[in-house]
Amino acid sequence: MKQAIVARTDIGMGQGKLAAQVAHASLRAYEDTDATAQREWKGEGGKKIVLKGESESQLQELADLARREGLPYSLVRDAGHTQLEPGTVTALAVGPGPENIVDKVTGDLSLF
């Protein structure tokens, strides 16, 4: 079991903003996961990785693929209070779910 969080690299988020967006995505996807998968993922240490995303369209495509694979996911849109325009897509969490299925969605991306 693992979770992959894809954060955009093309919008110039500061490190703190990036960390907050990754956390939002991770928590929201976890909350959409069924209780059995939540327990299994937490019991295995809550494995997660952060990956580089290059555009909003890429994150949208990955979200569609996650949905088709039956994985929980969360696409985060910024509220626009600080660095970004309201509604800017910043991050996507995929999973937690079986590692091999999460990798089908995000396995070609580079580590952040």
Score class of each variant (00 low, 15 high):
R68I: 00
L109E: 10
P72Y: 06
R67G: 00
Q83V: 02
T9E: 14
T82D: 13
V50L: 10
A66W: 00
L92W: 05
G87S: 02
A19L: 04
T88I: 14
P72W: 03
S55F: 04
E44T: 12
L51K: 07
N100P: 00
Q21E: 04
E56C: 07
V6M: 09
D10L: 14
L75E: 08
A93N: 01
G80L: 09
M13F: 07
I5W: 00
R28Q: 14
L18P: 05
P98A: 09
Q3L: 10
E31R: 14
R68Y: 02
L111Q: 06
L18C: 05
K48H: 07
R8Q: 04
V105N: 03
A63R: 09
S57Y: 15
A29H: 02
A25T: 04
L62P: 12
D10W: 13
P98K: 11
I11N: 06
R67H: 06
P72L: 05
Q15Y: 12
D10P: 14
A19P: 05
P72V: 11
V22S: 03
G46H: 13
M13L: 09
D78S: 10
H24D: 12
S74T: 04
A23P: 13
V94C: 09
A35V: 08
E99F: 11
E44N: 14
E40L: 09
S110I: 06
V50Q: 07
E85R: 13
A93P: 00
L84Q: 12
R77P: 01
S57W: 13
S110L: 15
A93S: 05
K52H: 02
L51E: 04
I49Y: 03
A4T: 10
V6C: 03
S57K: 12
